[in-house]
């Protein structure tokens, strides 16, 4: 399949409205003539930015899973729950579907996202031409699924707001919740700053030279 890409033709595609424009010689920052969004051939410093976000997320992934997400205080004593202990509790108490949902949404998805983005970045940096279509699909999935990891944070936020009966029962968000929220947000940033067009660039180069 021989295609001419915008980059090859020296054109710029707008990220926002998709208008194709010619680069202007004057000035270094270019704007879309139609919507005013800044124009780049490729997202600027996409790889390093993604790496930055990804590393931050990976670092915070540890406290997110180790520190308690929720602190329950009641008449009969205080309890601190991490995400995993919550899953274990749900599993042992028989709520298997719920345990599975939380496990998938809060542990597998963020972990999977970190892994997927790492794979994408490494492959792009090594200008690999391996399975570009699959990798693009993986990227789309990462982008799509990102926000669903916030389920846990929603639960904690709602419970914290609802259960405040002073001495009888209180629920507080633990430090793990902040870390977990940061992980989710940072992975979303990482996915956003990654330019999937980079996946296809080595392929085209090879075509041109080969």
């Amino acid at each position: 399949m021989t295609t001419t890409t915008a980059a090859e033709a020296g054109m710029l595609g707008c990220h926002a409205c998709g208008l194709l424009s010619r680069p202007s010689a004057a000035g270094h920052t270019l704007e879309c003539a139609r919507c005013g969004a800044s124009l780049h051939v490729r997202k600027p410093y996409s790889i390093s930015r993604t790496w930055a976000f990804l590393m931050a997320a990976a670092i915070l992934y540890i406290p997110a899973n180790v520190l308690p997400v929720m602190e329950t205080g009641s008449l009969f004593g205080a309890q601190k729950d991490t995400i995993l202990s919550g899953v274990v509790y749900l599993w042992t108490s028989g709520s298997w579907p719920l345990a599975a949902i939380i496990f998938v949404a809060s542990i597998m998805v963020p972990g999977g996202k970190l892994l997927a983005l790492t794979v994408l970045l490494v492959s792009v940096q090594r200008r690999s031409s391996w399975n570009p279509l699959e990798r693009t699909k993986l990227y789309r999935m990462v982008e799509l699924v990102g926000r669903w990891s916030m389920v846990d944070i929603y639960v904690v936020a709602i419970l914290t707001a609802l259960v405040q009966f002073k001495a009888l029962a209180t629920i507080k968000a633990g430090p793990g919740a902040i870390a977990f929220g940061a992980v989710v947000v940072l992975t979303m940033f990482a996915a956003e700053s990654f330019d999937p067009r980079l996946i296809w660039d080595p392929l085209e180069e090879r075509q041109r030279h080969g």
Partner: peptide, 12 residues
């Protein structure tokens, strides 16, 4: 951008 992982690393 690189400040972010540094901050995260510091926090962690």
């Amino acid at each position: 951008v690189w400040a972010i992982p540094i901050v995260a690393a510091l926090a962690g």
